[in-house]
Computed example of a mutant assay.
Amino acid sequence: MDGLLPRSLVNCRMLEVLDVGNNNISDTFPYWLESLPHLQVLVLRSNKFHGSVQSTKESPSFPKLRVLDLSSNYFVGALPVWYIENFNAMMDPHKDGGSPEYMMIVFLH
């Protein structure tokens, strides 16, 4: 795939995983995917995405997102703190009965 990320993906309301890594996509951050109610994994790695990572709204975005890979692109600027703070699906609210913590990797021997 090369060119722009197809905006018709916003119509895929049941989409859970979108991995377009290692393509030749030259586009801005696809903030328009933030309303997909079931999206859990968004991989944009190793493309030519550019500009800032931002949203058009300050309400919770990507309600079920657990994995976000933006590496090896041409994004500029800081990630908006409120954006990351609203990624509630990345947290485990049942961890030891305490406050929510971000998901952790457990290595088994």
Rank of each mutant, 00 (worst) to 15 (best):
S52G: 05
S26N: 12
W32P: 01
M14G: 04
P30D: 03
N23C: 02
S71M: 01
Q40G: 08
M103H: 14
F49I: 04
K57Q: 14
L70H: 00
W32S: 03
L15F: 11
F87I: 10
N24W: 01
P37V: 10
S61R: 13
R45K: 09
G98S: 03
V53S: 04
K95P: 12
N73G: 05
N73Y: 00
Y102R: 13
Y31K: 03
W32R: 06
M104K: 11
N86V: 13
E58M: 15
S55L: 06
E16Q: 04
N11C: 12
M14R: 14
K48F: 01
S35I: 07
V76Q: 10
L5Q: 00
Y31H: 10
Y31R: 07
P37Y: 11
Y83C: 08
A89I: 14
G51H: 07
M103I: 14
L65P: 11
P30I: 00
Q40N: 07
P6I: 12
K48W: 00
P37K: 09
K95I: 09
S61T: 11
D27I: 03
N11M: 10
G98P: 02
H94L: 13
N47T: 03
N88D: 15
M91C: 13
E101A: 04
C12S: 11
L36I: 05
S99A: 12
K64R: 15
S61W: 15
H38R: 07
N88R: 15
Y31C: 02
G77S: 04
S99K: 15
I84W: 05
G97E: 13
S72I: 04
L70C: 03
N73E: 05
L65Y: 12
S59F: 12
S59E: 14
Q40C: 09
N88Y: 15
E101C: 06
L42W: 00
L79Q: 08
F75N: 01
E85A: 06
S99F: 15
K64Q: 15
S72N: 14
Y74K: 08
S35L: 09
S8P: 10
E34M: 10
E101Q: 12
Y83H: 05
S52C: 08
S99W: 13
V17C: 02
L39M: 07
V81L: 03
S35A: 11
S46G: 02
G21V: 00
S52P: 09
L4H: 11
R45G: 02
H94Y: 14
V43C: 04
G51P: 10
S59Y: 15
R45N: 00
N88K: 11
R45L: 01
S52R: 03
K48N: 07
V10S: 09
N11L: 08
S59W: 15
L18N: 00
F49C: 02
